[in-house]
Write a protein that binds this DNA or RNA. Sequence first.
RNA 1: GGGCCAGUAGCUCAGUUGGAUAGAGCACCCGCCUUCUAAGCGGGUGGUCGCGGGUUCGAAUCCUGCCUGGCCUACCA
Length: 577
Amino acid sequence: MNIQTLLNQRIQAAMVAAGAPDGSPALVRQSAKVQFGDYQANGIMGVAKALKTNPRELAQVVIDKLDLSDVAEKVEIAGPGFINVFLKNVWLGKELAELRSSDHLDIDKVDSPEVVVVDYSSPNLAKEMHVGHLRSTVIGDAVVRTLEFLGHTVVRQNHVGDWGTQFGMLLAYMERLRAENSEISMALSDLETFYRAAKTCFDDDEAFAKRARELVVELQSGNEDCLALWDEFINISLTHCEETYKMLGVSLERQHVMPESAYNDDLVNVVNDLQEQGLLKESNGAQCVFMDEFANKDGEITPVIVQKTGGGFLYATTDLAAVRFRQHTLNADRVLYFVDARQSLHFQQIFTLSRKAGFVKPETRLEHMPFGTVMGSDGKPFKTRSGGVAKLSALLEEAQERAYQLVASKNPDMSEEELRNIGRVVGISSVKYADLSKNRTSDYVFNWDSMLSFEGNTAPYLLYAYSRIASIVKRSEIDVESLTGDIAIVEAQERALAMKLCQFEEAVQQVANDGMPHFLCAYLYDLAGTFMTFYEACPILNAEDSVKNSRLQLSLNTAATLKQGLALLGIETLERM
RNA sequence: GGGCCAGUAGCUCAGUUGGAUAGAGCACCCGCCUUCUAAGCGGGUGGUCGCGGGUUCGAAUCCUGCCUGGCCUACCA
């Protein structure tokens, strides 16, 4: 149940009945303050202006046409022409009962499911995953889970970088190790070290560099030995990724990998198609598309280069081929790209060109979901203490260790095994949540202490709130499934909690629409805080039976919502911590 | 040079697309454990929303001009 949608529809209909033009938005929002009720409609003033009438008078006419008697106990006009809606406690209680009996927290599946292709994570296989991949991977996965929860068909696309000149260098190094009879799989167990070693050879050894360049050519021309070597490398690198995904609790698997190299055979077709449509122009030996949309005031256009001087293709070409594949083979209605904000211009160009060239249907939505950079405390991109790029796996190990130390100091009597598991969940979720809870588009500062803190909008706080409820339920010794009866909203804290619980769907839909998981984080933090307030003010297990029954159900609803919400974020819950 | 993004409390961040008196957490101050996990809860101090104009019933949000920072800007991805 989405209250905002319900009120929007009802009030909008009443506005039209009151003489407002069709489609006038009611602009229903959660009220800013309690004295303004639960929801407020802000749309009257704008319409009144267009109609040149008094907004308060219009609001009165709208209210006369509006029947909310089933859900609201009071509807009033306030200020310059707001309509404030005060919902009925009885109705909230009924909604919660439905929420409890639903296996989907009473969230409606979308009427018309879409095929949503989501491009996320997409590491470069030449190196190991590092902090730079955290945001795309974690945010993309949360949005993917949310879209699926709402009933959309999601196609995950891990657009990994497995092609390009740096692979010549890596293959040359593999060759050398093999010639020296060294253990290659051993050397590849740490890709970062391997890459550095290969790079050193490439920079210092002219013969090696020459061989590396040869191997690039051989690879591109399909030499079988070379391809076998490349395959071996790619396979090991992908295995590293999968280990990281598993540690992170990310839903990406081998089947979702659609590497850059998969488009190789199609690149020439892309260029030919552009040529046939007269979109191509040679410039300085390169094949380019010049689009007016990317001209500056002097008429100079930043071109899209699709083929280099000498015939090589670029990432723009690959992305165009990918757009076509996603449209025609995957049948996408919507394509989301969780890619660094620095590539904004690139994607604008790709999207604009894709439309011009007819690579996508006009109604297909292509959306770049840019994100900011993870910063260190110095305000510069996050690095390890030694100044290198932080390997993601090492970062996650550290998170688990730090969390373990914290948890162990608080629970001296717990078994080592349980402590390790709690440390794992708390550590991983802290890193993920710290990322997810920030506005996607802005940079944020990576800070161990604040993300592992039990205070504020953090994973530990939410996990703790959940485990506290789990503890109450356990103590109650009541069969959760058979627990029924009315949910009575009496105390202010009960009401606040009930209201919050009914707003889960609004947060979920926001995440799906905007690709912004931080809305859900803010909601869950709010929910947990509202529960804590309720918990302090309203005894549960010590209350008389009917009250206890009602409050237990409120608690169970909270637990279910927290668990589901965290699951959408890709975060596990703990029954005890 | 041009373009994109950002600038909100001492610090870290929100702000539902133009709504009512700008919100959280940390830090600081004051309270609350013989009762369901105090890893918690309640209260308080703290703001020229980078600066100046403009648009209107109403602006952190929109338009414009500056200031500051980051990024992108033809053959890397």
